[in-house]
Design a protein around this nucleic acid. Structure first.
Lengths: 188, 188
DNA sequence: ACCTGAACACCGTTCAAGT
DNA sequence: ACCTGAACACCGTTCAAGT
């Protein structure tokens, strides 16, 4: 279905607001970014944002979605290239790199899960989807089926922990090495 | 050194404010709790709090400290009793129980680490102290010295991850079992 | 349908003034 | 030294009014 001219304009405005919010949320932080600042950056009046989004949390969810689809695109591109050995370790490092500049946003999501139903449902969906992908990946590495759930969840927690806490490059390498080794050798 | 009457009064007022803040931060959440509400609960004028604490973050740090010393007291009491077998698993479960009603506060700390230097330094000190205790505990369980750092950090991240994410009792048990088994068998 | 100016209720914090 | 009433600058959000 072709889009009308006004629909195009609407989508452009929508994208412009999300882009401004993404930039500001990441650079300055969610709490430190006011709706007025986002509006200014997007070239609209502050209350215009409320025509496109129910509230600030809905805008946050839109930003998270845009980041997720962008990361997914990079992930697919990466999957096309020949894997780097050791593959599992490389995968975990790639994931950590992806999350590196999002640490403040991750913390924001966890903080708002309990007070915003929109963020809460997004967070639930994200973890379900992510653990499914991670499980498939780990299964390919030979992790036993009955342990996939625990294995993927532990991986997720360790990755999130590293991302959330200041960790020296050396410690980070040691942790990734340990996690990969544990999963590889079928400790489960 | 004996305390003067006014010092006693001062300490009482101080404690009363911290107690009110702790109750409200845990029950309603940090962001959802206004300074006015805390003041009301503590029976003072809103701006009186600023006589005792530099800002809301300083009050948060005071609450965290009060929670930490209380938990430490329970930990010592627990250490006096004969350990429950399997000991490592029991320790991790105890820790998870301690953190259970603090999940929102943990998320708040992680969210504010990047914007408040007071919270940032508290968080750093906490992790250093906690990993030292955990390392000693794991060393007693026979974890090799060279792997203590990674082992304690992974344990910390998994425990924090479980606390931060909705986890069924069954999944929680499975994760604790896995972590204990991995550490026990000297996978490191 | 889309956008705005003006307003609302509230927030953390400050300050001059009281005791 | 300790506490307060009143104010400040700002916040997310709403609403009536415009096109």
């Amino acid at each position: 279905m072709a889009k009308t001219k006004s629909e195009i304009h609407r989508d452009a405005k929508h994208a412009e607001i999300v882009e401004a919010a993404r930039r500001l949320f990441i650079d300055a932080g969610y709490d430190q970014t006011s709706m007025s600042r986002i509006a200014e950056e997007a070239g609209v009046a502050p209350n215009t944002i409320y025509w496109y989004f129910a509230d600030k949390d809905a805008l946050l969810v839109a930003v998270l979605d845009s980041l997720l689809t962008a990361a997914l695109k990079r992930f697919v591109a990466k999957a096309m290239r020949p894997p780097q050995e050791p593959a599992l370790e490389a995968d975990l490092c790639w994931l950590l790199n992806e999350l590196d500049h999002l640490k403040t946003l991750i913390a924001t999501v966890h903080a708002r899960v309990s007070s915003s139903t929109a963020v809460h449902t997004w967070h639930g969906n994200f973890h379900r989807a992510f653990e499914a992908v991670l499980s498939a990946r780990l299964a390919a590495y030979g992790v036993h089926a009955s342990d996939l759930a625990s294995a993927s969840r532990v991986s997720m927690f360790v990755v999130e922990g590293i991302a959330a806490h200041p960790t020296s490059a050396k410690d980070r390498r040691a942790l990734v090495k340990w996690l990969a080794a544990t999963l590889d050798r079928g400790a489960f």
